[in-house]
Structures are given as C-alpha cells and as structure tokens.
Nucleic acid binder design. Structure first.
Lengths: 352, 352
DNA sequence: GTGAAAGCGCTAACAC
DNA sequence: GTGTTAGCGCTTTCAC
C-alpha cells in the first residue's frame, strides 16, 4: 500500500500486537483475546468491531506468546540433524498424516557447526529448549539412545534402541538386507559384495549383519575384500564401488546399503564399461521411491519411510491423547521389490 | 535413571525452568541468566556452581521464552504448504547453506484442513504468527503474490511475482520449457504433447508457455488435443497420459511438466506396450535429481532446487545483515540435460 | 557481584 | 459484558 516502501527492503513495521488492536478498537486486551479465541462473554457488536480492527491491521496472534502462556502450542516437532533424503522422505509421511489434524508441524534442525561437540547432544538440547513451550510432542530422528526425560511425548525413529527407552519405530533393516542377499543368492550369485552404510547408524550395522547372515546360511565364506564402506553417500560409495569392480575377481552382484550408494555403483559400473544389469547385478536399500520409478526398473529393498512417518505420528497422537502404546517398538517390513532386471551370474558369464 | 518410569509413557516431569536452577543453586534467576548467556559480572565460583546445577538438572533455556524477551530467536523459518518433493529438495539446499551458520532452521507447515479457506492465506497467517517472535527471517514457498508487510526479512521462492514485491527467486521455467521442446523438435518430432502442471502455479503456466512458444517458433500449429492436465501429480498425470497415448494419432514425444508426471507417463506407456524411449520420447522437468540417476538415463530439464535454496538463504542473510540486494529477483537457469536416450521420430516410425 | 523488578505478548481468573 | 490483574520463562536495566 505505502508507495515509498522499497520492494527490496520493505519497511519493517513493528509487529502488530494485541495491545494495538485493543487500543484501536477501544477495548481491553482481554476482550480482544476473547474474540480471537472465540470465547463467549463478548457482546456481538464488540466482537464485530474487534474483528474488523483485526483484519484491518492484519493482526495475527503470536504463536510464541500464546503458547508460552497456554502451556501448549498445537505444534508437533520433528527434530532432525539435517534435511537429507531419508529425513525428508519421512517428513512427507508425517506431513501427510498430520494434514487436516489439529496440529501444525515444525521440522527443526540446529545449526550444526563444524565442531563435533556441537553435534553431540543436539537432540537433548533441541528437545529441551523446545519441549513444553514450543512443541507439544516430538518425533526425533536420531541414532542416539539416550533421550532426556521430557515434558512431552516423544517417538524416536531409527534409534539404536533396545527394548527399553522411548517409543521407537524403524524399518526391518536386518530382514530386508537378508532378503536382498538371499535373492541374489537365489539367482546363483556367489561373489556378492556389500557397500556398507554409516558405521554410527544402527540401520547400517543391521544391513551388514543381514548380508552376512544370508551368506553364512548359504554356506558361503566371508570375503572381507568384498565389503567396502559407502557411508550412505555418493562419493565415498563411488570410490568403494570402483575398488570392488576393479578387483582381480570382481563381484557379480553388489548389495548397496542405500539408494545413493546403489546409484553411485551403477554410475561407476557404466564408466567402467559394465552394463547394469547385464554385466552386474545391483540391489540397494531404497530411501526415495521416485529414484526407482524410471525405466528399466531396478530391484530394490523398499523402505516404507512415508509409512514410518505416518506410524510415528499415530503413536505420537496416541501418547498425546494419554493412551499407552500397545506396540511401543515397531519394525516395519522393508520389502524386496523385484522389478525383473537383475541378471543371473550365468547370463553374465555367458556374455563375458 | 528413575527405574519406575515406564518406557512407553515416561513420567512427564515438569519442565526444568531457570527458577528451578536458581533455587537449587541458591542464587537469583538473574544470575543464572547471566551465567547461561556468558555475560560477565558473575563471580567465578558462582558461575561454576550454577553450571554444575544446570548440567545436573539438564536445564536448557526455553527458546520461546528467551526469544519473546529478546526480540530475536536466532532461527530462520521456511514456510511451506506441505512437505513434498519440490519443497524438500529446496530444504536440502537451505539446510546445507545454513549449517555452520549462527542460525537454526525451522520448516513450518500449518495443519491445512480440508476446507479451501484454511488454505487461503496460510502464508500470511503463519508468517504473522511466527514473525518477530519465533523467526528472525523467512523463506516462503508460495505462489501467492500478496505477502504481508512484515517485521522480518522475507525471500519468496516461486511466487507469481512481478518486478515489485518481496525478494524472490525461481527457476527459469520459461526458458527450460522452451529448451526441452526445442530439443524434441530438433530430433524431428512434430507431434509433441504437453502434460501441464498445476494451473495455480506460476511455474506450470510458464512451462506451458515455453512449450507453446517453441512450437510456434517452429511453425507448428497448436493442437489443443495434445495438451492435457497432469497437475504435477502421479495419478492425474497417468490418466492424461493414457488419453494422449490412445489418441487416433498419438504424439511421438511428450514434454511433462514435472518428474512425477514424466514417471507416470513412462509407466503408462509401458503398460500400453510402448517402450521408452524406443517408441516414445519423454522429457520432463525434474525436481528430484535422484529420480533420474538410474539407468538408462533420461533426458530432463534439471531445476537447480538446492541451489535455489542456497541462494534464497544468501539473500535472506544479506537482508538480515541490513544490506540491500543487488538482484532482488533471481531466475536460476533450468538446464536441459541430454542423457542420450531420447528417440528420434524416425526411429519410432521405422519400428512401427 | 548480585538480586529485585519490569516487561516481551498473550490468556485465564476473577472482579466489577 | 468488560476490564483488571497475575503470570507463563526469560533477559535486562538498575539499585544495592
């Protein structure tokens, strides 16, 4: 409206407060508060007048101030170390499940500095600083077991959790990894490599364990040279994949700990003149469903991250409603999705 | 520690407040506050004692209370209608750029009810209710032009913005769409269909416009039957793709408004017995880079969403520092990435 | 060096 | 119906 406000640096009007509205409407702040919150005990005319002023001034009550006073905010928080594919996928499920509910959703991530000590305990710090005043409940995405006793209900996703501890939910990493490896075995592969995930994450350890168990059960001796670190990230995974594929006796199949590693592996294979799946079978745990929607379809272990998000919300809402959880620790199945283009070693050998 | 706390419903201890710490340390709250915020004017011994109590009680100051009092929170907000691939991709860039900075990051989304009126104006409402008390600056992802004058600096991503209005940033949707269509034309395609995005989003309109402009420039008359609604979503896109591909004279190429539509198109094509790219060329605007990492590579128009996020943060930090922006309205190039598997119509005809 | 007191914006008792 | 008051947890003068 004001024509002299620069579009680039708009005039920073002071915040419109409830006091401004009260003064402008000629009533007390208490009355304004009542109108805003649809409390009764206000004359119709007064209410109208207040509402008019509210919309004229563009007033909106401060979430911070009202939740500080009320003791509840109507906001649920998701605490993340970082926004990356895993957590954002989870957020999609959480967001979907929560839309239409009475709760707003907030995803919070601390400014993790370069120092490791900033990293350590971020869950505890964030949770404590937000709990009770800004968020009414939290979903916390973390490998850390030790969560502080909190004012508010908490559900942990993917924690290093034993049977005790907070309510928790994760994928069946062990079973999924076993299924992936067994599938490759069933095709006849015997030299199956594994591209590990991040050593500090439970999911990575379980995936490696599943891989080992499946091999052992099939009577195949472990070959340390066929296990390499991918760190759940593209470039370390690519480097390790290159090492694996240039071994004197390279694997005929690779089980990658996540989708980024699997994609990196495929890229490297192609750059080495190998075709996938004709010359190399790749199966990876999958975080991002979109990543495997393209043709030709890849066989993957699909993690139901969105469902995990939705379940986490369900548990949290249950806790908020004062219920106790029938199943405080959930493992959702990580399903092997065979999409029909995984080569058998016979094919590979025949071609070689 | 307490052994009788149920793991499922932990005892909800009351929040530890600064008052608790003060009482326990035998000092005033003012002193505790000084210690916490590293203010001087506190005796060394006192400070030690307070710190001990703080860690003993696991005290963490309430973000809400302190920011209410201070008038700044050290938190930047990203306001989203929803967590979906576009916005989460953006978040990855924002998060990356902000990590290591002094600001924490909060992504906020209101509980959008089923009613359209809940939807309308959520930006204004959220922004007003958070600005100044909870967040010091905002990146707002929205098609809405009208943003309220705010207390805090705001950068808009993907708005229906003219040259005025708040600082804004988006992809070069027009140029990208033109490039995609010109590419298909250069391969010899003449029957090129377009799967539109959401009519309420500027990006969708610009992509359609780019498509039209390219056709017109090539002297190809518009064929309304070759333009269908995809809505940026899988199922409507699939439906429209089916209609296009079962036309008496189906297109030899489809330009899809986003990656979900492109993937849906490929799925439908395959279900109709068509191979992509052998029997149909598909090029789509792409939100999620991972979605096209798999083999065989697809040709896409890559949107630099993470870079957009990073740029948005840069602009916001500039504004927060009191600078004015040299470039208040940025269009980052949306680049055509040819990955070598887009069929020419000659190939398709030869095969038919 | 330390604490009492005011107040950030708001809501909930309780007077009037 | 309406306003006055107290106080949520915290930081900041400003006395002592």
């Amino acid at each position: 409206m004001s024509s002299d406000a620069s579009p680039v640096r708009p005039a920073r009007k002071a915040r419109v407060t409830i006091t401004d509205v009260a003064r402008s409407a000629g009533v007390s702040v208490a009355t304004v508060s009542k109108v805003i919150n649809d409390r009764d005990g206000v004359a119709l005319g007064t209410a109208e007048r207040v509402k008019a002023v509210v919309s004229e001034l563009g007033y909106e009550s401060s979430l911070v101030a009202s939740s500080l006073r009320r003791g509840r905010s109507g906001v649920l928080g998701v605490l993340l170390a970082e926004f990356e594919p895993f957590s954002t996928e989870l957020l999609k499920g959480i967001s979907a499940r929560l839309s239409g509910s009475d709760y707003d959703l907030m995803a919070y991530t601390g400014a993790l500095g370069p120092h490791p000590q900033d990293q350590a305990g971020w869950e505890r710090r964030s949770l404590s600083s937000l709990a009770g005043t800004l968020i009414d409940g939290a979903i916390i995405v973390t490998p850390t077991v030790e969560l502080p006793d909190t004012t508010i209900p908490v559900v942990a996703v993917d924690p290093h959790a034993g049977p005790s501890g907070p309510a928790a939910i994760d994928s069946d990493n062990l079973g999924g990894a076993r299924a992936a490896t067994e599938y490759l075995l069933s095709l006849g592969h015997r030299r199956i490599a594994h591209l590990r995930g991040r050593a500090d994450l439970q999911s990575a350890l379980l995936r490696e364990q599943g891989y080992r168990e499946a091999l052992t059960a099939a009577g195949i001796p472990e070959r340390p040279e066929l296990i390499a670190d991918g760190g759940y990230r593209s470039s370390p995974a690519a480097e390790s994949a290159r090492k694996l594929l240039t071994l004197p006796q390279p694997p005929t199949a690779i089980f990658a700990a996540n989708d980024l590693s699997a994609i990196a592996t495929i890229d490297v294979a192609q750059s080495l003149g190998l075709r996938v799946p004709e010359d190399l079978s790749v199966v990876g745990f999958d975080n991002v469903p979109e990543a495997v929607g393209t043709a030709p379809p890849l066989t993957t272990v699909a993690q139901p991250l969105r469902e995990i998000g939705q379940e986490a919300v369900r548990m949290l809402l249950d806790l908020l409603a004062g219920h106790s959880l029938a199943q405080p620790h959930l493992h959702l199945p990580a399903q092997l999705v065979v999409r029909g283009t995984t080569a058998r070693p016979a094919d590979i050998v025949a071609r070689a």
